[in-house]
Computed example of a mutant assay.
Amino acid sequence: MTLESVLDAKSLFFVIASLLSVSAVVRFRPSECRLVAEAALPLGLAGFLIGVISMLSAESNPSQIAPGVAIAILTLVYAGIVRLLFVDSLNQNLLGARSVVGKAAGTGGVIIMMIWATTSVSPDGLAMFWYPQVAMVMTGVALLVFLIGRLVDNSYASDWAKKILGLGWLGFSMGIVAALSQLSTPTTLGPALAFSFLSLLYSTVAVIAGLIWIPQAMTSEEGSLSLGLSQILPIAGAVLAVLVGLTVLLQ
């Protein structure tokens, strides 16, 4: 293994620039860098999914899937390294006061990086990553979960990071089930796979936005937030398993 094999400038730039944007929320204060540590893996997963979706759009050339996956995984690896570097900050208070200006600046920076990432991996840019049906289904189910939770549980307004990722898992599973019924005609897999991967991407972006604007709703009642490898690795593993299956199918 050479150094060049584990270095990718675009992936590294995406992770660092995105986390610097998140740092603007806390005005780059070292005493409040837990937000950076918590946002690292979701941002890495978002970059990973952007890379995967762009590769699936070029399904006519399956030989490019494996190299593309390697680059996409590096985004997640870099984010994991940042999380590890800031692991001691996880004992800090995540619910401190944040200025609206800082939140807006952080959100704007993350949005700019997302736009840059999508346009740099595909000539279609944002258009390839926008699927209104997915957004409507995810929003509708989230509202339903909110309303039911408000009726039956006083803690409905907490721990939304796990709930949102759960919605992403649900959309991913629904898309895969739909895709399995179309394996005999691989050219029709596109919409089902788009629903799967975009569900995960949208839920990940929603978690990042929630961490910036309403961290108190993202955490549990005790103020804890578990978005570590135990949450992220199963998602990445499932995505890779689907990609391996597609590679074999399309060969």
Rank of each mutant, 00 (worst) to 15 (best):
Glu221Gln: 12
Tyr156Phe: 14
Ala206Tyr: 07
Leu41Ile: 06
Thr139Ala: 15
Thr185Asn: 13
Met114Asn: 05
Thr185Ile: 06
Leu147Ala: 13
Ile212Asp: 01
Ala238Tyr: 08
Leu90Trp: 08
Val177Phe: 12
Trp160Ser: 07
Gly47Gln: 00
Leu249Arg: 06
Leu198Ile: 09
Leu45Lys: 02
Asp159Met: 03
Val36Ser: 08
Met113Tyr: 03
Ala194Ile: 01
Ser173Lys: 08
Gly210Cys: 02
Ala127Lys: 15
Gly51Thr: 04
Gly171Trp: 02
Val239Trp: 00
Lys103Glu: 10
Val152Tyr: 14
Met1Ala: 12
Glu59Cys: 10
Leu211Thr: 00
Pro215Arg: 01
Val26Arg: 14
Ala72Cys: 05
Ser230Glu: 14
Val244Asp: 04
Ser203Met: 07
Leu240Tyr: 06
Ser199Ile: 03
Thr118Ser: 09
Leu41Gln: 09
Trp160Cys: 06
Gln133Trp: 07
Ser155Phe: 07
Ala40Trp: 01
Lys163Val: 09
Ala157Leu: 09
Ser173Asn: 11
Phe28Ile: 08
Thr2Phe: 10
Leu198Pro: 02
Arg27Ile: 03
Gly96Leu: 15
Ala9Pro: 02
Leu170Trp: 14
Leu243His: 02
Thr75Asp: 05
Gly96Met: 14
Ala70Pro: 00
Gln92Val: 09
Thr107Glu: 13
Met128His: 07
Ile115Met: 04
Glu32Pro: 05
Leu49His: 04
Leu35Glu: 05
Val25Ile: 11
Met1Val: 10
Leu90Phe: 10
Trp169Asn: 11
Leu198Val: 05
Ser155Pro: 01
Ile112Asp: 08
Leu183Ser: 04
Lys163Thr: 10
Met128Ala: 13
Asn154Gln: 15
Val110Gly: 00
Leu143Tyr: 09
Pro234Lys: 06
Leu7Asp: 09
Ser21Leu: 06
Phe86Leu: 15
Gln182Ala: 11
Met136Phe: 13
Val100Phe: 10
Ser203Thr: 14
Pro42Met: 04
Leu41Asp: 06
Ala46Ser: 12
Ile232Cys: 04
Leu250Phe: 11
Met138Pro: 08
Ala192Phe: 02
Ile73Asn: 09
Leu41Pro: 01
Met218Thr: 01
Val239Met: 01
Val242Arg: 06
Val82Gly: 02
Lys10Thr: 12
Thr188Asn: 09
Ala24Met: 11
Cys33Gln: 14
Trp169Glu: 14
Pro234Ala: 08
Leu233Met: 13
Gly171Asp: 07
Gly166Asn: 04
Ala157Pro: 02
Glu59Phe: 13
Ser54Ala: 15
Ala238Cys: 13
Leu225Tyr: 02
Val22Arg: 00
Gly149Ala: 03
Val141Cys: 07
Ile214Ser: 06
Gln64Pro: 00
Gly168Thr: 10
Ile16Thr: 12
Ser18Glu: 07
Leu95His: 14
Val82Leu: 06
Pro123Tyr: 12
Gly166Pro: 03
Ser63Trp: 12
Leu243Met: 09
Ile176His: 00
Ala194Glu: 10
Thr219Cys: 08
Ser155His: 12
Ile112Tyr: 10
Gln251Val: 08
Ala105Asn: 09
Ser60Gln: 09
